[in-house]
């Protein structure tokens, strides 16, 4: 597993796309900081980008990578290696190199602009953790999609659909439900629904840091407990781990049963 991880990371770190992704974050960081030299505002903008774009890029990259390495995966399958190790090796290779691009790409401009001496270091750190989680989750989702779909066009289609559903449609439906049923106590419901979507979950994790004052404005006891104590951060992180583990397990199960 580690050998495959090593080689796929090595391969990816030298690919053009990794550089594109890396420079995207690098340029983004510099532009944001150069434009307003206000680190907190940059953190907020980057939060929007991380929560929305990181999943999209991860899922597209995941699908692309899987289809591109399919034949190589078959070559590996004929080698004396356990099946699941091949998959996990490649999965980690992709997720880690995407996360590295993100961390280094954003880290350099922030370091240059003296972030590591400012108060927002924790916010920034949280952003990177969330970005990392999203990379790992959406690469796993991408692999699941490709394992079920041999057809590339279909695979890409489903990937974009999944992203669109989780990033936009889900929240729209969620908001409409809340508005329709506003006569009922909805605070537990709304927290649970938020947790069921990894994008919303990451957003809440960051909100806990950036917008705590507004979140405490809501009167519900459940909200108050969730946002007012360490419970929010703790349970969000726990669910995040669950969100990471379930797609990985599904992915491995499908891979072990798949015919190549």
């Amino acid at each position: 597993m580690f050998k495959i991880f090593k080689y796929s990371t090595y391969d990816l770190l030298r690919s053009r796309w990794s550089y594109v992704y890396f420079s995207f974050y690098l340029i983004l960081g510099f532009v944001l900081l150069f434009l307003n030299s206000d680190v907190s505002k940059a953190v907020i903008t980057i939060m929007n980008i991380i929560v929305i774009l990181t999943p999209l890029i991860a899922i597209i990259f995941g699908v692309m990578y899987y289809y591109n390495t399919k034949e190589f995966t078959e070559l590996l399958l004929a080698q004396p290696i356990k099946r699941s190790k091949i998959l996990i090796g490649q999965y980690l290779g992709l997720s880690v190199s995407l996360s590295l691009s993100l961390i280094v790409g954003l880290g350099i401009p922030f370091a240059v602009y003296g972030l590591f001496m400012s108060m927002v270091i924790f916010d920034f750190f949280l952003l990177l953790v969330v970005g990392g989680f999203l990379n790992f989750i959406f690469v796993a989702l991408a692999f699941i999609i490709t394992l079920y779909n041999e057809n590339r066009i279909k695979g890409f289609g489903y990937a974009i659909l999944v992203w669109l559903l989780l990033a936009v449609v889900y929240d729209g439906v969620f908001m409409i439900i809340l508005i329709i049923f506003k006569e009922y106590p909805l605070d537990t419901f709304s927290l649970v629904v938020t947790m069921l979507n990894p994008i919303d979950l990451s957003r809440i994790l960051i909100l806990l840091e950036l917008d705590i004052s507004v979140l405490l404005g809501y009167t519900g006891a459940v909200f108050k407990k969730f946002f007012g104590t360490g419970m929010g951060m703790l349970s969000s992180l726990t669910v995040m781990f669950v969100w990471l583990i379930i797609p990985i397990l599904l992915m491995i199960r499908k891979f072990n049963k798949k015919d190549f």
């Binding site: 391969d11 034949e71 070559l75």
Partner: peptide
């Protein structure tokens, strides 16, 4: 089982390798 593959060599029909190695 997978250990037996150590005593087996396979030449696949289409060869596609990691591009950047």
């Amino acid at each position: 089982n997978w250990e037996y593959r150590n005593n087996l060599n396979y030449l696949p029909q289409i060869a596609n390798f990691p591009n950047n190695l």
